[in-house]
Write a protein that binds this DNA or RNA. Sequence first.
DNA 1: TTGAAAGCGCTAACAA
DNA 2: TTGTTAGCGCTTTCAA
Lengths: 369, 369
Amino acid sequence: MSRTFSAPHLVNPETRNRVLACAEDLGYRPNRAARALITGRTHNIGLIIADIANPFFPPLIKAAESQARQRDYHIFIADTNEDPAAEEDLVHALAKQVDGVLLCSPRMSNSLIEQLSREVPLVVINRQVTGLPAVVMDVGQGARLAVEHLTGLGHRELALLGGPRGSWTNREIRRSATAAARTADAALTVLGPNPPTEGGGIAMAEQVRRSGATAVLAYNDLMAIGLIEGLDTLGLRVPQDVSVVGIDDIALSRLTRPKLTTVATPTAAAGRTAVDMLLQHDGSFFARAGRGGGRTTTTDDRRTTAQVTLQTELVIRDSTGVGPAAPADRPGTAAPADRPGAASSADPGSHGHADPGDATAATPEVVAS
Amino acid sequence: MSRTFSAPHLVNPETRNRVLACAEDLGYRPNRAARALITGRTHNIGLIIADIANPFFPPLIKAAESQARQRDYHIFIADTNEDPAAEEDLVHALAKQVDGVLLCSPRMSNSLIEQLSREVPLVVINRQVTGLPAVVMDVGQGARLAVEHLTGLGHRELALLGGPRGSWTNREIRRSATAAARTADAALTVLGPNPPTEGGGIAMAEQVRRSGATAVLAYNDLMAIGLIEGLDTLGLRVPQDVSVVGIDDIALSRLTRPKLTTVATPTAAAGRTAVDMLLQHDGSFFARAGRGGGRTTTTDDRRTTAQVTLQTELVIRDSTGVGPAAPADRPGTAAPADRPGAASSADPGSHGHADPGDATAATPEVVAS
DNA sequence: TTGAAAGCGCTAACAA
DNA sequence: TTGTTAGCGCTTTCAA
């Protein structure tokens, strides 16, 4: 009696118990795929990721999986290797097996995404596509905080280590960093595009030196760490000679020497939120006709395609120090212990905070001498 | 005409083309779930992971996904948060939706795993269960190489930072390290069990110091990195005062200062191999009756339950240096540049190698002065 | 070589 | 409240 599972309240408690007991005995478990065939709801979600091995993604994947399972959904994962063609194939291949797809793929064109969204409900992560639900992290705000932190420390010559061409995130960072530098009356040189990897950072060390910048904001932590390594090879010390700020706050950032000052993006929250948005939409707007007339994806035009923006935070660690134009009442020798922490009132614009998740760290994140 | 897709050779080329053209027009794609209902093969694989965010796993996940997709399979991913109960639930929940499950879960009991394997084909990773296909990395061999490397450098007092209780990997490492230390006539103190995290390493720094060991092998890189951090806080320098070796060679290991000497485990190869083993078994031994008599999992007793062991390698970087009993013809001051690299003939037992995957690194992995 | 029909495990609609 | 039936999209068998 299938009703015991699908509509338990409509069944006589006694009958239900008998069925349940029997099912227990036989080890019976409903076949979700068969159920999906008629209900049109698979209870599966697709998660398409540009590069699983990029340390930025695992926390997002973990959070999405956890949230999905809590709502009785399973996650299909797929890695596109940053290849847009693979992304499209994947969406097609998964379409019939999932109730929706979370798309974390910077490379695909907006128009293609819109087209795919007619085949299967989509939530895009870290980019914005008109008419589609999206969850983005406010890297623009983060970049602004980073620039304000650096100019507040007395840096006047900044560089931005750009990420890959065509990345939504990269555009946001660039736009916002440029604006913030202008406001603070500092110069900002944009270097790039670059591959968003450690190697990309290492390779740019020489150009950073030539640019004359005393402070650098990198597209992500991996590049920042690579840059620090490259600068080290050139004999430039961080933060004494050059300050470096990353973006993402991957786990790695607090394990390098010096510990990286970086813009923390809430990746876990993004994963959870994306799942919630998908399921919310799936429940109301994208419901499929279970029977009669085949599979109809009702893409209601009045749907509220919420675009959630998650806040970012500046985490100040050890890779940033005072610059040449530091206020006179501070020591000019950019020794790490001398630099003002963002938590001090002297630097109101930075919104910095000691990293709360680092209870085991041996040294405090923000050193206010 | 479904035959066009399932048995193209049995169909008139002209008809086939007409069907194909039509399908193209309509954007038709076969529904794999419906197909699975009758064929009994879902073309899905479950991948159950203890902790996705642990940097050890993403390369494995990525490789497994890539290999699976190449063979036209999709991957369900699930994170158990190191919780054995979750592992069992997950296997049950996924059983009907997959053709097999890759189990990367150190916590479950052997008997439970055997029981679950009657419900769905299983391949276990990094442990051995009699009668079940498994792919393990030879951490025993790796631990031996590490101990030989350390004793070759003149260390006589070693410590082993153990991992979690009940871990198969942990037992292997312990067994092998103990044997290797005995052979080399060195003392080895086992400290633990510990959580396999950075925090676990930090917390043990004090005990390591008290143990008097001049060289430490850690259960994994995360712990090794934590230990280095903890030792640093205590004023002990690595490798000058204490040598530290990790296990896994996670990406992070070459980005810390000092770069970590570690036992590289072939995680990507493990992911690929596990998929191959599952599909091989699935094709021959675990084929399900498609029709008549319901779903019968033919668990042939004569099945070849191959247990593949993948070799590990010692990667010598900067966290190991000469110890107190170093041969007289070498400088006794354990400055990094002075220590003999494994590549030198003076240290035949270590099998060390310069890391091949690190083409962009600014400094060579093995410094032979 | 092709069409027709049965049925995989399940749910939804309709009767009883 | 429960039994019965049709049919989700597909493959497989059997006839034509």
